[in-house]
Amino acid sequence: MTRILHHIAPVLAVVAAIVVLWYFAAVILNAPWVYDQAARAGETVGLAELIPATMAQERPVLPAPHQVAAELWDTTVEKKITSKRSLIYHGWITLSATLLGFVMGTVLGMLLAIGIVHNRAMDMSVMPWVIASQTIPILAIAPMIIVVLNSVGLSGLIPKATISTYLSFFPVVVGMTKGLRSPDALQLDLMTTYSASRAQIFWKLRFPSAMPYLFTSMKVAVAASLVGAIVGELPTGAVAGLGARLLAGSYYGQTIQIWSALFAAAFLAAGLVALIGLASRMVNARMGARA
């Protein structure tokens, strides 16, 4: 019990500090509107009236934590998941594109890494292009991808997943290339003394050696993938998904809706990264890592 407390106490302390700072910021940022309203009505507000007034606005500059929490509760638990106002409904739309893009990005990244490690021409030529691809702002290229794919009859999930793929293959290429090259000279010499084929060296040495690198880059990739899916939803005219919630919220000044969508995205990302961490631990245990 005390051990759990030891782990949780620092986390709780940090969360508490953030919440306090957040309330403080909410008061300061939302106060001008309260003063403005009061001035128009020809009233004056004291501190006792000001503070509650900054925390109960419909469109605050910065919503207070309890407002966001209430909105999150209302749009997840209280609404049916088929409802257009349910965050779970929108979250699933984004999550499905994220997962598809993540799987495609991981596979693409692994294939490129395998090519880079085994083929001299690819080794010399691919990496600069991979790096160049990531210097293009995703916001600039996302609408193009949507338009191009739309013109060939692909819409909905695939274009968003494509943008996710575009962002998520990068960490996998970099990590996997490093991982496949991680076996030391002795381990490779051993394979040479057995006259092992390249395929055997790959499956019995390079691939297992790359596992820790792969899982680390997959954690980065899945978060990037979520960002890609959300960005991909922005130019689609705000139909559905967390990106659509963000866009609609900003159109109508619904700051509470924006913040709750942001939190939903953050929780989703944390959950995905945790899942990969779990998978990584399971694979590590099977590969004989020290407990």
Partner: peptide, 11 residues
């Protein structure tokens, strides 16, 4: 071939 280090694959 037996190398200077055992070089067992840790996994």
């Amino acid at each position: 071939y037996v190398f200077q280090a055992a070089g067992l694959y840790p996994w």
